[in-house]
Design a protein around this nucleic acid. Sequence first.
DNA 1: CACGGTTAGATTGTTCAACACTTGACTTCT
DNA 2: AGAAGTCAAGTGTTGAACAATCTAACCGTG
Lengths: 249, 249
Amino acid sequence: MEHSQIHRVSVADQVASILRQRILNGELRPGTPLQEVPLSASLGVSRNTMREATRILSLEGLLKRSIHRGVAVSQLSLKDVQEIYHLRRMLEIPAVLAARSNHTDVQPDLQNALEGYEGAVRRRDWARAVEFDLQFHSLLIRFHHNRRLESFYQRVIGELRMGMVLVDRGHDNPGGLVPVHRKICQLLAAGKVKQCAAVLAQHLDDSEFRLSRVMTDISNGKRKQRGIGHPANAAGGDNGAQSNKSSRG
Amino acid sequence: MEHSQIHRVSVADQVASILRQRILNGELRPGTPLQEVPLSASLGVSRNTMREATRILSLEGLLKRSIHRGVAVSQLSLKDVQEIYHLRRMLEIPAVLAARSNHTDVQPDLQNALEGYEGAVRRRDWARAVEFDLQFHSLLIRFHHNRRLESFYQRVIGELRMGMVLVDRGHDNPGGLVPVHRKICQLLAAGKVKQCAAVLAQHLDDSEFRLSRVMTDISNGKRKQRGIGHPANAAGGDNGAQSNKSSRG
DNA sequence: CACGGTTAGATTGTTCAACACTTGACTTCT
DNA sequence: AGAAGTCAAGTGTTGAACAATCTAACCGTG
C-alpha cells in the first residue's frame, strides 16, 4: 500500500508487526498454535521469513516457542498478572513523582490518549478503550526519560494487553475509570505529583484487583457474558490441549 | 540421570550464545562488522541459522542491524552509559530497600559473587572482576522478586559489560571497590537497608563517573573507529517495525 | 480391558542453492 | 574536479529438500 513510503523494513519485521497486531487485537487468542506452513503461505512469505518473525515475537514475550512443537500465542497466568502489576507500580509511580522536575511535553500526548479513551468508552468500543488506557499509562513512563525503560515497558504492556483481550471489559464498569484518568492528568498538569501518585497507586490496585477477579472467574468456569465474534459453539469438540483454562469453552 | 539434559536447544540459540560470549568477553569488540557468509561458515551453520542468531542478539541490544548493510557489534555512547546508570539507580536502590521485607536466600549468591570478585582482583584478572562485579549487582535485583525485571536487567547489564570490555579497568583502582561491595553485603545481612542504599547510591555515582571519564578520554584521545557506516547512536537494537511507539521520537 | 511398543504421518529444525535488491566503491565522461 | 554510470559484494528472501522429533493411530500381549 505504501509505495511512496520507504520500505526500509525487512519483510520479517513486517510480518512480525502483522502478527503482533493480530495478537494485540485479540484476533489471535492466547493458546492459539501457529503453524509455519499455512501461516507463511497465507501471508505470502517463505517459511524462513516466518521463522524470523516468530523469533522476534517470542523474544517479545507474545509467542511461546517449544522446541519441535511449534509456537503458540502466550497465555498469561495470574502470577504473570501480579508480576506485571508489580512492575507497573514500581515504574509508573516514580514516573509521575519525577514529572515535576523532568518537565517535558508529554502532556499533550497524555491529553490525546485521554480523549481517545473517553471517545472509545462513549462508543462502547472496549477494545480500543483498553488500547488507549494502556497507551495513557505507557506515556507516563516517558517522564523517566529513558529509552530502554520505555521500550521494556512497551513490551510489558503488550503482554498485559494480550491478556486483557480475552476479558470482555464491557461489564467491568469501564466508564468509571475515565474520571480517574482525567484526575491523574489534571493533577499532573497542576504539578501536584504526590497527590497524583496516590491516585495512580489506588487506580493500579483497583485495576489489578478487577482483572485478577475476572481471570479467576474465567478459570473457575464462570461463563463470559458476551463473546467476540463467534457464536456459542461451546458444546463438544475439544479444541486442543488447554481444555480447562480456555475462556470460551 | 537423564542422558541429555538440555539437548533441547536449537542451533540458532547455541550460535547466539557463542556470539554473546565472544562479545561479552571482548573477543568481538564494539563496532566489529559481522558478515553472514564467513561467520556462518566458520561456525559450520547455514546462513539462515546465523540470521536467526543475529536476530536474537540484535533484539538483546548486543548487535545493531542496519538494513542491507549488515550487523555489527553495538557501540555504547556516553548517553547510553548515562541511561544505563540511571536505570541502575532506579532499580538497584529500591531493590535493597525492599530487601528486608522480601526475605530471600540471595545472600549466599551475593557472598559467592563477592568472593569471586575479590579473588579475581587478587589475581589481577580484570575481565573476570568486571564479570563478578556486575553479577553482584544483578543479584540485587532479585530482591524485587520479578522475573521480567531480572531478565530485563540482565540484558541491560550485558550491554554495559560489552561497553566495559574496551576499557581496561586495571588502571582504574579496581581494588578500591572491593570494600564497598563487602560493605553492601554486610549492611544487607544486618538488615540496615537504608544505610545500604546510601552506600550503593554513592558507589553507583562513583562508578558512572569513572566509566564516563575513561570513555571521554578514549574518544578524545584514540580515534579508533571501525565498523559499518553508522558510527553514531549505537545501542539501538533492532531497526524493525516495533509496532506501537518507536522509542526514539 | 489395560498396557507398552511399533509404525506412519505431520510438523518443526536446518541446510543449500539460487535470485532480487541495495550499497558503496570504482570507472568514465564532460 | 564533479556528476553520472557501472559493477562486484553483501544482504534480503525464496523455495525445495532432508533430518529430527513429536503425535496419534495401530497392534499384539498379558
